[in-house]
Structures are given as C-alpha cells and as structure tokens.
Amino acid sequence: MSGGNLHPGLNLGDHHGKAHSGAEAVVFGFWIFLMSDVVIFGLVFASYLTAANPMGMAGGTGPAEAFDLGSVFAQTVILLASSLTFGFATLALRHEDGRRAIARWLAVSLFLGLGFLTLEMRDFAHMIEVGAVPQRSGYWSAFWGLVPLHGLHLAAGCLWIVVMLAQMATLGLVPAVKTRLLRLGLFWHCLDLIWVAVFSIVYLGGLMP
C-alpha cells in the first residue's frame, strides 16, 4: 500500500487530495465509535454467557431444538462474501473506477446483506415456532437481546448503503461522500467481525456435542 496512511481501513491515497486529508479525523472518530459499539456487544455477550446454563434456560426449549446449523453456515458465508464485495467497492473508490463501478459492488453487498437478513428472519420464525421466545426464559431473553442486535446493526448498514447510492447519484463523488463510504466500509467489516463471535459463541457453542 502506498505511503501516507492516515486512518484505519483502506485509505483513499494522496491522489484524492482533500478527501484523503479530511478523512483522518472523521475516520478516527468513527473508529472510536466502533470500539464503543464493540464494548456494547462484549457486554451483551457476557450477559448471554451468564444466562447460558440450565438455571437461565428455566426448563424451556434448549438451543439444540431451535438452531439450524446449515442456515447459520449459509449466513456466515454470505456475510463473508459481502465483506469481500464491499472491499472491492472500496478498491473501486480508491482507484477512481467511477460511480458506476462503485455502485455495482455496493449493490452486490446490499443484496448479500439482505440475503443474510432473510435467512436470519427465517431462523427466527422457526425459533418462535418451537417456543424459543424471549418471554420463555432468561436464556432466550439473552439470545434475543444479542443476535437481533447484530441483525439491527446490519439492517442499519443496508439502509446506509441505500443512502450512499442516493448520494452518489445526486451529489456525485464529493469528498464527504467518499469519507462516508470509507466509514460505511469499516462498519460493514466490523459487523462481520462481530458475527464471527456470534456464530462461534452462540451457535457453535450452543450446538456443541
């Protein structure tokens, strides 16, 4: 990578001028926000683990009856692929491939994100069917406090992609739009990172033989 990295994530590079230099403070600030958000998730994870025992389950449905490993695997791969396609969108931005190329990769990421959410909704519907609802036990409260929180973040990310597509169409690639795309990229990758903890702790941990 060329010199002059000012912030985490892929940098625009010096050839972007003001958009690159202006990104330093903004992206750093967003990075701090993400760290704060990571702490929120960390504490929800800790609360989940506190409830993941027979006392927390209070004799209700267990994870084995409610989780579908195949669907979770599909969600994981879809989300990982969306991280890759978002990376390509950022590369298209950095190397000035033009609005159309960026929008294409963003649209693919959006499509994958929505696919992830669809599968997750289907899983949730199944859980409700088998009685794995938050009103049933402390364990399911903790689950419904954690996994849908990630889903909500992802939904916000999808909305953000839509807004950015609209801004690229109306405002063009002005510096503000460029740094917003960089921040959206960090957000998107960070959600994938949190998903790694979700599938490892909640799903794989819950289905361990």
Binding site: N5, G9, S83
Partner: peptide
C-alpha cells in the same frame, strides 16, 4: 478476528497507524 482486522480493516503494526 485477527484475519478480519488485518486483511479487511487493514490494521497493521506499522508506525503510521499506531494510534488506531
């Protein structure tokens, strides 16, 4: 998680990004 940080979020040990 380390892979994500390194390859997607581009966090490395170089001097420029030590604050992050």
């Amino acid at each position: 998680i380390a892979v994500h940080l390194r390859f997607f979020l581009h966090i490395d040990l170089s001097r420029q990004k030590r604050e992050d």
